[in-house]
């Protein structure tokens, strides 16, 4: 028996059972709510502490809330979820595991930095396609205030950022996947990204560190699935920001991939330029809220039929930055289609 019938090339996979998107939800912070997608989010929180005593607790609560909301929308019970796949940016991915403690679901903690939304969808859809699970929840979150204190400076410090820096999105997104076939949006194929490092050292310029990984994953996906970019209505990257987006577009042009008008980056679009948040949004929550707040809704309404979602991650830590290491990037691709 050929055990690799679902594999295409080295890194891509087709899912013959086409796991479906059953439900999705997004919660976003105030600044994100004031951005162009503000009206798309299920909940915009006005108090980013959510009444909790620490930012970390607030972030975890946001993740727990978005998962509960995602399940409630389709009357799914926590007991009916076979696995919760998720992660976040905090050390030891505590936001996700603390949320899992409250939810009482079997839990697989993932760390892919800001690529976590795609990573969780990738593994979740494989679990369903492999017949191991009926329903899974894929979710991730980030919070500006927890990311700042872990990666950068205290909030009240009067420091200056370069104009190409990005702003961590406060938000959480959840997608429930199911083996049931009576839902319109399906996950059709996947490409597991490789770590790509073009020797970028500036931790403020994460778009530059991640763009090569995104271009590599896209090129592999299109080659291995034998497609051209115009197969998709929309190709989405996670949080390259305006600098990373420009770099990604150039790298794609170098690979002779024509994106023309069918490409967006969640980080570049989540904030309006007049919000003055440097090169745009970043963080696990960035692509999670745009996917679960806006893009899946557009697919559900039939406005888009085929979408390639590629969340991008910068795999650095504050320690490796201080030790002068370069920043490895990663991107995973999930192909969604309306059946």
């Amino acid at each position: 028996m050929n055990r690799n019938t679902k594999r295409r090339g080295r890194q891509s996979y087709v899912l013959p059972s086409k796991p479906r998107v059953k439900s999705f939800a997004a919660i976003a912070g105030k600044k994100e709510g004031e951005g162009p997608f503000g009206a798309d989010f299920d909940i915009v929180i006005s108090d980013d502490t959510l009444g909790e005593k620490s930012w970390e607790r607030a972030e975890s609560r946001m993740l727990e809330d978005v998962i509960r909301l995602c399940l409630e929308k389709k009357d799914l019970l926590a007991e009916g979820v076979d696995a919760f796949l998720g992660g976040d940016l905090l050390n030891q991915i505590v936001s996700a595991s603390f949320a899992a403690r409250q939810l009482g679901m079997p839990f697989l903690g993932l760390y892919g930095a800001c690529s976590t939304m795609a990573e969780s969808l990738l593994i979740g859809s494989m679990l369903i396609d492999g017949g191991f699970a009926q329903n899974v929840v894929c979710a991730t979150c980030s919070h500006f205030s927890t990311a700042e204190r872990q990666y950068r400076f205290p909030l009240e410090m009067g420091s200056v950022r370069p104009p190409y820096a990005q702003w961590t999105v406060t938000g959480a997104g959840a997608t429930a996947l199911t083996a049931e076939q009576n839902h319109p949006i399906a996950i059709e194929s996947l490409t597991l990204g490789a770590v790509v490092d073009y020797n970028q050292n500036d931790e403020n310029n994460m778009g530059a560190a991640m763009a090569p990984a995104a271009a590599d994953t896209l090129r592999r996906h299109l080659t291995e699935m034998n497609r051209s970019a115009d197969y998709y209505d929309l190709i989405v990257t996670g949080d390259l920001g305006r600098v990373g987006q420009a770099l990604f577009e150039e790298l794609c042009a170098d690979h002779k991939i024509e994106l023309k008008g069918r490409y967006m980056d969640c980080g570049s679009e989540i904030f309006a330029p007049e919000q003055n948040l440097y090169a745009g949004g970043s963080g696990c929550g960035c692509s999670a809220v745009v996917l679960n707040g806006k893009l899946l809704k557009e697919m559900e309404r039939g406005e888009r039929r085929r979408m390639l979602f590629m969340a991008t991650g910068a795999l650095l830590s504050p320690t490796t930055t201080l030790q002068g290491e370069s920043i490895p990037g990663i991107a995973h691709a999930v192909s969604l289609e309306v059946c």
Partner: peptide, 13 residues
């Protein structure tokens, strides 16, 4: 690639 990054990253005013 470094040249691309330098060219496309906005400078401080």
């Amino acid at each position: 690639y470094d040249e691309k990054v330098k060219r496309l990253s906005p400078k401080s005013e």
